[in-house]
Amino acid sequence: MRSMAGRITLFEKMYALWLREFKVFLRERSRLVASTFTPLLWLFVIGIGFGSVAMLPGGESVGYQKFIFPGIVCMSVIFTSIFFGSYIIWDRKFDFLKSVMVAPVSRGTIFVGKALGGMTSSLIQAAILLCVGALIGIPYSFVGVIEATVIVILLSFTLTSLGLALGSYMQSLEGFQMIASFVVFPLFFLSGALFPLDKLPAWLSILTSIDPATYAVSAMRSALLGVGDRPFEVDILILLGFTIILGAAGIFSFKRMKAV
């Protein structure tokens, strides 16, 4: 049994690691600007360029820009979260990680602290995008915004875990960048962020069904536009399953990571 005091210090350690990520995030404004810019580009260039009308699963039609908005929010989470994995390589390069690993902190705690940092970046970016959504007329409800927040939390933790797990195996930033691109684009394109998934051939459907972002996009559409591919609760439960599996994979990969 872990004592009460022990549990408090455990959270303090996690908090300290998270705080460090958060402060670095706040100080590196260019990071925030750059990663918010891309989703906006998609929203306004693709969203307006393909100005045609897309059909929602329910048959109700909305403008294409509104149709892809939930997907674009998820997209910003996908990119930010996966590429967040590169920071573990930085930490190793600059030996900061060594100083953390020699402290009495478990690898699991280090992982969670780091992943919470990545999650925070994603949340802030999603919040900015949701504000932009108000400008293009997304019909927000209070519950919808809460639901969207839950989705962002789950998806970002899931994919930050994946990014950090990848990063923990890689030695060079360039190598990570390559691998991460191989992961990010399929995750995004197969998620249904840009087009409805119901008319896809079977082999593509299989791929989309193993993409955690698929369920996040569907849930986000339920939350913001009122119609998803599945009931909101089902999407959330499946997403939670991915969170647990990839979270565990992340902790495992941190446990086996060499300190020096």
Binding site: K23, V24, F94, S99
Partner: peptide, 12 residues
């Protein structure tokens, strides 16, 4: 421990 190479976070 004090490492041979600096290990502080220089953004902080």
């Amino acid at each position: 421990i004090v490492f041979q190479t600096p290990s502080s976070d220089d953004m902080l």
